[in-house]
Design a protein around this nucleic acid. Structure first.
Lengths: 199, 199
DNA sequence: TTGCATGTTCTCTGTTTGTTCTCTATAGTA
DNA sequence: TACTATAGAGAACAAACAGAGAACATGCAA
């Protein structure tokens, strides 16, 4: 990503976080300190090509962020009461501890995806869950990653590197088989850092 | 949403908050600084199509704000970027969609426990997870509850009532057996409403 | 039932926004 | 030096948007 594009993307993220909708080209131009809408348009095209943005036709404010997240600002901390284990008393915690979600939910490089299907069910990731991902292009062996196959098929799997040039994507579901791809066909979109389930 | 529509919606929300009923087209027009009722009508149609408003026939003051518009923004919601399903492109979502944690995280009657063990693993609740519980003394059949046995053993299980006076606690793990207790021995401490996993 | 205020559906017009060019300038580099 | 990549300006054009207002339809009250 070029410096100008990075600057542009940052401004868009900030704008969306603040307003809840995307800026128009002129607002972006002003925001990054230039005057030409045409130039901004060029940066945007670059960001779209790299998969950071989506455009909704030629509509005004038609930009959509793809891989980045707006941060949740004021998430109330919850009291963490203790540990629960089957057959034992709840183990109280010394100090008044709170579950601070903000570290996970705040980084601008985090985003959320809702899971469909049961390919990772043995990892406790079920249909309908929200996975919190960190946007990054690399991963450690065994990480659960959002992987893009051939630039358009997305999937959530364990990733293993098989030297010299193969990637094995392993589902956490006995009914499903691991798949092996040449390294060139796989793009890592992010790594799962957390999970949220409601209901 | 177009700028004009946003302005229109804001005015309507403000008007309703102030008066308790919805404005007529001419009032909206005046409120957003234009004169044409026809134009306002067009904006309204757009807002209805986007699900922000509802119209009660062609009656005067027949506009109704939908829940989403009414309930305000006490806690900044998280952006939900899309769905991920194995083998498909990530399905992007309009930016209206958000992961709204507020209902879960807001109530003062919610608390968090950290899970030890795998007794609920088939429900996707794993060792180390945080379960978000609502503090209550009763539960529906099948709820996952924090139950206290004989006032000191805590456990996380599915709860079923077996009339007239027995409680069956069922783990979500094939390796473990359901347990049946007399109703007097069980105290319900809360019901699991959500789950959070970090790392 | 009549009459008026209100809501709807058009068309028309000017403005704003996004796109696509070309042009310039400044580094870094072979 | 010449070449390349990056950054930016700005003009010209098309699409989208914002608004006016006329003509018509509808609900409601006297």
């Amino acid at each position: 990503m070029k410096d100008s594009e990075r600057k542009t993307l940052q401004f868009i993220e900030q704008f969306v976080a603040e307003h809840g909708f995307s800026p128009k080209l002129q607002e972006i131009a002003k925001g990054i300190g230039i005057t030409s809408r045409g130039t901004v348009s060029r940066y945007i095209d670059g960001l779209i090509e790299q998969g950071h943005l989506k455009k909704d036709g030629k509509k005004s404010r038609g930009l959509n962020l793809l891989q980045t997240a707006l941060q949740g600002k004021l998430i109330a901390p919850l009291p963490l009461l203790g540990f629960i284990a089957a057959g034992k008393p709840i183990e109280a915690i010394e100090q008044e501890e709170v579950l601070d979600l903000s570290s996970l939910l705040q980084g601008s490089d985090h985003y959320v995806l809702r899971v469909r299907g049961y390919s990772m069910q043995d990892e406790g990731i079920l249909d309908g869950d929200y996975v919190i991902c960190q946007s990054q292009k690399t991963a450690e062996n065994g990480d659960i990653v959002v992987a893009l196959i051939d630039e358009h098929e997305a999937t959530l799997k364990h990733l293993y590197w098989q030297p010299p040039d193969q990637i094995k994507l392993v589902p956490a579901n006995e009914a499903m088989q691991p798949q092996v791809y040449h390294i060139d066909r796989i793009t890592i979109q992010g790594v799962v850092k957390g999970l949220f389930r409601a209901g």
